[in-house]
Amino acid sequence: MTAFPTVAAFKTTLATLPEADRQARAAAARRQGQLTKPPGSLGRLEDIAIFLAGWQGIERPRIERGRAVIFAGNHGVVARGVSAFPAEVTAQMVANFAAGGAAINALAAAAGLDLSVVPLDLDRPTIDFTTGPAMSVEECLAALSAGAAAVGDADLLVLGEMGIGNTTPAAALAAASFGGAPADWIGPGTGVDAQGLSRKEGAVADGLALHRDHLTSAFEILRRLGGREIAAMAGAVLAARTKGVPVILDGFIGTAAVAPLAMTNPAITDHVLAGHCSAEPGHIRLLDRLGLRPILSLDMRLGEGSGAAVAVQVIRSAIAAHDGMATFAEAGVATA
């Protein structure tokens, strides 16, 4: 799956999700039981290794082609004063990524990840979703397809985003997918004050009211309330599932991209790990609704895939222990 040419193709893919390799999971679990340690003593590291084995289809998983992909898009709703920064910062940060000067450049390198940045029509912000659908059908399909194409031959995928104002559509997506008042999902984002928070709450409320009768499918929620970079992350998650590629989500916006998919098919999160829990207030609530337990909690709120990239170092530790430890038999250690 490298593209979503039609809405029907998107819906069919979401409805027919492949499962993990049960035999590989079982083999990895047996190996964990034979390693020189008390059962369960490495905690979640054991769970992560078994998770990766199931999706990579091998008893001893590897990260040989780990990839971080950052999608960038601009949002018309920024005109409502929902961000502490102007929209032109999106393109400026994309240039910073290209020059190697951003946090994600350093963190991806430390985690041994290839990094690619995909700007999506930065000179054409989405429509302000309080006045109409953020994207046309064709624009949303193009964004979903851009995400799908970015998966490539990765064996582990970290997803990140850059888009000034995008915590506002993320809050709208969460509310449309799982209910609750706008105030339950909004937060300071890049640092808006109390008046900015009020404007965010109003924008989410107005968008939900305008589109209420149409928020009945994952596709319509994404195209009416989302943004290009958010739809691209959703497309990447869905395409990764078809290829059996484990996905590491970053913060609130990346997690919100999955929310409409999970509303339709909760099994979409079976191949996903939450890299961290960000400081954005709605993120922990959204992770809970998705049944995702974050690997890290470091009070990060940058975006860019930064928290997920840091979590990859923990994931590599899980793989190292799973692959490199001796079994009781190999070490000549008694089991009883």
Rank of each mutant, 00 (worst) to 15 (best):
Ala149Glu: 14
Ala149Phe: 07
Ala149Tyr: 00
Val151Thr: 04
Val151Cys: 00
Gly152Ser: 04
Leu156Trp: 03
Leu157Gly: 01
Leu157Ala: 00
Leu157Phe: 00
Val158Met: 00
Val158His: 02
Leu159Asn: 00
Leu159Trp: 04
Leu159Ser: 02
Leu159Val: 11
Leu159His: 01
Gly160Lys: 06
Gly160Gln: 02
Gly160Phe: 04
Glu161Ser: 05
Glu161Asn: 01
Glu161Pro: 00
Ile164Val: 15
Ile164Tyr: 01
Asn166Cys: 03
Thr167Asn: 07
Thr167Phe: 04
Thr168Arg: 05
Thr168Ser: 07
Thr168Glu: 03
Ala172Arg: 00
Leu173Tyr: 10
Leu173Val: 11
Ala174Gly: 08
Ala175Tyr: 05
Ala175Trp: 07
Ala176Ile: 07
Ala176Gly: 05
Ser177His: 07
Ser177Tyr: 04
Ser177Arg: 08
Phe178Thr: 10
Gly179Ala: 11
Gly180Asp: 14
Gly180Cys: 07
Gly180Phe: 09
Ala181Asp: 15
Pro182Lys: 00
Trp185Met: 03
Trp185Leu: 01
Trp185Phe: 07
Gly187Lys: 10
Pro188Asp: 14
Gly189Asn: 09
Gly189Tyr: 08
Thr190Leu: 12
Gly191Asp: 06
Val192Asp: 08
Asp193Pro: 09
Asp193Gln: 09
Ala194Glu: 14
Gly196Phe: 06
Arg199Gln: 13
Lys200His: 14
Glu201Ser: 14
Glu201Gly: 13
Glu201Thr: 14
Gly202Arg: 12
Gly202Val: 13
Ala203Gln: 03
Val204Trp: 02
Ala205Ser: 14
Ala205Gly: 14
Asp206Ser: 15
Asp206Pro: 05
Asp206Thr: 14
Asp206Gln: 15
Gly207Trp: 03
Gly207Thr: 12
Ala209Thr: 15
Ala209Trp: 06
Ala209Ser: 15
Ala209Arg: 13
Leu210Asn: 07
His211Tyr: 11
His211Met: 11
His211Gly: 10
Arg212Leu: 14
Asp213Thr: 15
Asp213Ala: 15
His214Asp: 15
Leu215Lys: 00
Leu215Thr: 11
Leu215Asp: 13
Leu215Phe: 11
Thr216Leu: 13
Ser217Lys: 09
Ser217Ala: 13
Ala218Met: 07
Ala218Cys: 11
Phe219Asp: 13
Phe219Lys: 02
Phe219Arg: 04
Ile221Thr: 14
Ile221Asp: 07
Leu222Val: 10
Arg223Ile: 13
Arg223Ser: 11
Arg223His: 12
Arg224Trp: 11
Leu225Glu: 10
Leu225Val: 13
Gly226Cys: 03
Gly226Gln: 04
Gly226Asn: 06
Gly226Asp: 05
Arg228Trp: 09
Arg228Val: 09
Arg228Ala: 09
Arg228Tyr: 13
Glu229Gly: 11
Ile230Pro: 02
Ile230Gly: 08
Ile230Leu: 06
Ala231Asp: 11
Ala231Asn: 04
Met233Arg: 04
Ala234Ser: 10
Gly235Gln: 02
Gly235Val: 10
Ala236Cys: 03
Ala236Trp: 04
Leu238Pro: 06
Leu238Arg: 12
Ala239Met: 00
Ala240Trp: 06
Arg241His: 10
Arg241Cys: 09
Thr242Trp: 01
Thr242Met: 12
Thr242Val: 12
Lys243Arg: 15
Lys243Met: 10
Gly244His: 00
Gly244Ser: 05
Gly244Cys: 08
Ile248Pro: 02
Ile248Val: 15
Ile248Trp: 02
